[in-house]
Write a protein that binds this DNA or RNA. Sequence first.
RNA 1: GGCUGGAUGGCAGAGUGGUCAUGCAGCGGACUGCAAAUCCGUGUACGCCGGUUCGAUCCCGACUCCAGCCUCCA
Length: 466
Amino acid sequence: MLKQEAEGLHVYNTLTGQKEPFKPITPGQVRMYVCGMTVYDYCHLGHARVMVVFDVVTRWLRARGYQVTYVRNITDIDDKIIRRAAENGEGIEALTARFIAAMEEDAAALGVLKPDHEPRATQYVPQMQEMISRLEQNKLAYLAADGDVNYSVRDFPGYGKLSGKSLDELRAGERVEVDSSKRDPLDFVLWKRSKPGEPSWDSPWGGGRPGWHIECSAMSSTLLGEHFDIHGGGADLQFPHHENEIAQSEGASGKPFVNYWMHNGFVRVADEKMSKSLGNFFTVREVLKKYDAEVVRFFILRAHYRSPLNYSDAHLDDAKHALTRLYTALKNTPPAAVTLDWNEPHARRFRAAMDDDFNTPEACAVLFDLAAEANRGDARAAGLLKALAGVLGLLTQDPVAFLHGAGAQQAGAGELAAADIERRIAERAAARKRRDWKESDRIREELAKQGIVLEDGPSGTTWRRN
RNA sequence: GGCUGGAUGGCAGAGUGGUCAUGCAGCGGACUGCAAAUCCGUGUACGCCGGUUCGAUCCCGACUCCAGCCUCCA
């Protein structure tokens, strides 16, 4: 495990727009909150990116010796959920349970470790009400004519500090719908009066349900305290969601809320943001039919978390070939058992990369250098390769198993079974023995047509799926 | 319109004021019955125009183009 002081981790903080030395509030401990999913549909690649990115952040913090408490919430009550459930003629609980299960499945497939807490909004309604009351006491919330409780943004002096906007600038956009019951168009709902038939909780302001932003403020302070280290999420949450969280949390507690804000870049399709509203999204399970989950994870980690990531089959294929190279090295040279020495030159470079705002592409470059050394027969390099990749949650499979399965996760129907392949290889070996190259090449050709690549080595023929 | 980011070789994608990113693809060689894999070698890459500098892809300024946010979105 790494000494935390050595050189030092630097994190890009959206709040300041700069990389800053990372200093936890409590030495040796990190408390991190990440905005998770609203569970009314399957995860798409954008969600996958958030999960993988902050999974790696957590893993690296732990590798560095920090004791991490990682919270990733689940939004299980909101307009879209209500609407979707109504469309489906399905109960809200049934709908959310279904998509929570699907999300857990996707996350597990992608090698994402479970967060320490996965709180659901519906389980924290009392805490939200308590916070809203405090905001009322602090003159930051008011009951509007339509029965909603709103946050009064102009009464919170720091409003806009995360997104770098002033209230005037925001208003200039004039895309905000005029809502006469709000004192300021940017005021947002803390507590929403329920319409008949909608889920409703009793409250001092009448039957209603929480606004979207309040859940994160309530859950984070309950589980991590009013002031914690890292808050993460997709870049699109910067405004208004995270801005509003700050307003709520700091408005209620009077304390600073979060020290480091981290936002990951979008997944794009044809240079456009992948999003539900554009309809240009690919669900995780859809992609996993075509690509091994580790390929998807590797694809995400080959780009820096703050950069945009363009999705296309060609790019996934590229990632697959690259990952195949890594696994091939492990197959060629079985890794020696090594204990990670962070002062070893490769490990040092890897560490420096990860310490520099989680520069996973640079860390991956180290992996490829080690693969080259492993291919020259260096079992220690292979061992180091496996160990460092493991820190990123990569190269966790058996190399031969990966190479035999690479491509589709589920060996699709119509795909040649391993036993058949082995049988053909044996037949080819016989042909080769009698120097019948024509027959030998015919068999190889035939297998190639089915995506099977044969590799003749000194100790026999091995195969992999292309 | 306002505010953020970005523009790197065929593609993907890091990074740096003056010797290497890395991967995929390509090319040449080795190995192989032939391949594949692997190894060795191989590319006048840094949007455009000025400026600072002995020297800029990297610093500064203008410009062009792209993406994102300003409405739900990871």
